[in-house]
Simulated scan of single mutants.
Amino acid sequence: MGRVTVRERVLRIREGVEAERVDTLVVEEPLEIRLDGSPLSITMRTPGSDFDLAAGFLVSEGVVSEGSQVTAIRYCAGATEDGSNTYNVLDVSLAPGVPLPDTSLERNFYTSSSCGLCGKASLDAVRTKARWPVADDGLRIDVPTLTGLPDRLREAQRVFDRTGGLHAAGLFTAAGELLALREDVGRHNAVDKLVGWALRSGRLPLRETVLMVSGRASFELVQKAWMAGIPMMAAVSAPSSLAVELATEAGMTLVGFLRGSSMNVYSGRNRVLLERALTAPSAAPGVPRPPHR
Rank of each mutant, 00 (worst) to 15 (best):
residue 180 A to F: 04
residue 180 A to T: 13
residue 143 V to Y: 10
residue 181 L to V: 01
residue 242 L to W: 13
residue 174 A to P: 02
residue 163 T to F: 02
residue 179 L to S: 01
residue 171 L to K: 06
residue 216 R to D: 14
residue 224 K to S: 15
residue 177 E to D: 15
residue 154 R to W: 13
residue 146 L to C: 05
residue 141 I to D: 06
residue 223 Q to L: 14
residue 187 R to N: 11
residue 159 V to F: 08
residue 180 A to P: 13
residue 210 V to Y: 05
residue 236 V to K: 08
residue 162 R to G: 04
residue 237 S to A: 14
residue 159 V to S: 04
residue 158 R to A: 08
residue 237 S to C: 13
residue 210 V to H: 10
residue 189 N to V: 00
residue 226 W to K: 04
residue 229 G to S: 08
residue 158 R to F: 08
residue 242 L to Q: 14
residue 161 D to F: 11
residue 234 A to M: 05
residue 222 V to W: 00
residue 169 A to S: 07
residue 171 L to Q: 03
residue 170 G to E: 01
residue 236 V to F: 10
residue 241 S to R: 14
residue 188 H to A: 14
residue 241 S to A: 15
residue 233 M to I: 15
residue 238 A to P: 07
residue 231 P to Y: 06
residue 215 G to H: 10
residue 181 L to R: 01
residue 173 T to V: 09
residue 216 R to C: 13
residue 164 G to M: 08
residue 218 S to G: 15
residue 199 L to C: 09
residue 203 R to F: 08
residue 146 L to V: 07
residue 245 E to L: 13
residue 247 A to P: 11
residue 173 T to D: 02
residue 141 I to Y: 04
residue 202 G to H: 05
residue 144 P to A: 07
residue 185 V to A: 05
residue 151 D to M: 09
residue 167 H to G: 07
residue 195 V to L: 08
residue 229 G to T: 04
residue 228 A to L: 09
residue 204 L to W: 02
residue 145 T to V: 03
residue 245 E to P: 11
residue 199 L to D: 12
residue 230 I to F: 00
residue 247 A to V: 01
residue 233 M to C: 09
residue 145 T to H: 01
residue 228 A to W: 02
residue 218 S to D: 13
residue 226 W to E: 11
residue 184 D to V: 00
residue 245 E to H: 14
residue 189 N to Q: 08
residue 151 D to S: 14
residue 173 T to H: 08
residue 185 V to H: 13
residue 243 A to D: 04
residue 151 D to T: 15
residue 185 V to E: 14
residue 242 L to T: 12
residue 151 D to K: 09
residue 164 G to K: 12
residue 248 T to D: 12
residue 142 D to F: 05
residue 193 K to T: 03
residue 235 A to T: 03
residue 234 A to C: 10
residue 183 E to R: 10
residue 213 V to Y: 11
residue 164 G to E: 10
residue 165 G to Q: 12
residue 245 E to T: 15
residue 196 G to S: 03
residue 243 A to S: 06
residue 152 R to Y: 00
residue 219 F to I: 12
residue 200 R to I: 07
residue 224 K to F: 12
residue 147 T to F: 07
